[in-house]
């Protein structure tokens, strides 16, 4: 795995990943831009700083696992998996094309993809099953599962929440990419989920709130989660849908579309500016 120890390095990597996401979505001509961009910093934190894995040996039994329950955001996962070496970066351009391993929603079989997802609400159950198996086998690894905030409308999520708490799965850490939007609009208008953090707390989870685009905040959250005993952990990561590109941020219409050529150029220009600012 490629470790990056400094915040500036992680931020630079995130810019690179955002470029990669926008390029592949633009080439594909369809796909989910908003929710891919909102979780980039969470993925970068996990894959370049927190998780133990081996791209040369993707099935290594002792690895930490990442489950993308919000499967529609797979461009972000693909960009990261290619960058850390699970498959060639050249494959990214094949997203959503006939014959590609990069399906419109992630398919098990592509190295680094732990679970096929896309039908929302299923990832946490699978993650809990993996966490139970690791405990049975005395494997000292962590299972990470990221969900969308809209996704937790699904009842199965709360079934899994009960299971994880009942079996005291302290090796399971769920993250909600809390960008506050879903396809039909703002989450609170589509269907209110009430006191969100309290819900998870009352389901028996150790809850943490983090700023989902702040590397120090994310680092702290994952470190706190790792040390929790006897409980699964929920990190509610406050994010911005479409983060990083001004004309995509917080625009619900960007949930399920991809950038056109001119939009891609504008987005790249913004990312170039951000990179310049970073280097200073």
């Amino acid at each position: 795995m490629k470790r990056i120890d400094d915040t500036t390095g992680l931020k630079k990597k995130a810019i690179e990943i955002r470029r990669s996401i926008l390029s592949m979505l633009s080439a594909a001509g369809s796909g989910h831009t908003g929710g891919s961009l909102s979780m980039v910093d969470i993925l970068v934190t996990l894959y370049y700083s927190k998780m133990n894995y081996d791209p040369k040996n993707p099935k290594w039994r002792d690895r930490d696992k990442f489950i993308l329950s919000k499967g529609h955001a797979c461009p972000a996962l693909y960009a990261v998996l290619a960058d850390v070496g699970f498959f060639p970066k050249s494959e990214l351009a094949t997203l959503r094309k006939l014959g590609s391993r990069l399906q419109g929603h992630p398919q098990y079989g592509l190295p680094g993809v732990e679970v096929s997802t896309g039908s929302l609400g299923q990832g946490l159950s699978v993650a809990a099953g993996m966490a139970i198996a690791d405990k049975m086998d005395n494997i000292n690894a962590r299972i990470y599962c990221i969900m969308g905030d809209g996704e937790t409308n699904e009842g199965q999520v709360w079934e899994a929440a009960m299971t994880a708490a009942h079996y005291k799965l302290n090796n399971l850490c769920a993250i909600v990419d809390f960008n506050k939007m879903q396809i039909d609009g703002w989450c609170c208008e589509v269907k209110s989920q009430g006191e969100y953090r309290d819900k998870w707390k009352n389901f028996g989870w150790h809850t943490i709130e983090a700023e989902g685009h702040d590397y120090d905040s994310l680092d702290k959250a994952f470190e706190e989660a790792k040390n929790v005993k006897g409980m699964p952990q929920m990190i509610i990561a406050h994010t911005i849908k479409g983060k990083g590109i001004s004309f995509i941020e917080n625009k619900v219409e960007w949930h399920g579309i991809s950038p056109k050529k001119d939009e891609l150029a504008k987005a790249f220009a913004e990312l170039d500016e951000q990179e310049k600012d970073l280097v200073g």
């Binding site: 159950s125 699978v126 809990a128 099953g129 139970i132 198996a133 086998d137 009842g155 299971t163």
Partner: peptide, 16 residues
């Protein structure tokens, strides 16, 4: 919780 049970079964199968 049948739906969750099937998902957990998948996770167990993925773990051998």
């Amino acid at each position: 919780a049948e739906q969750d049970m099937m998902g957990a079964a998948a996770g167990l199968a993925l773990s051998g």
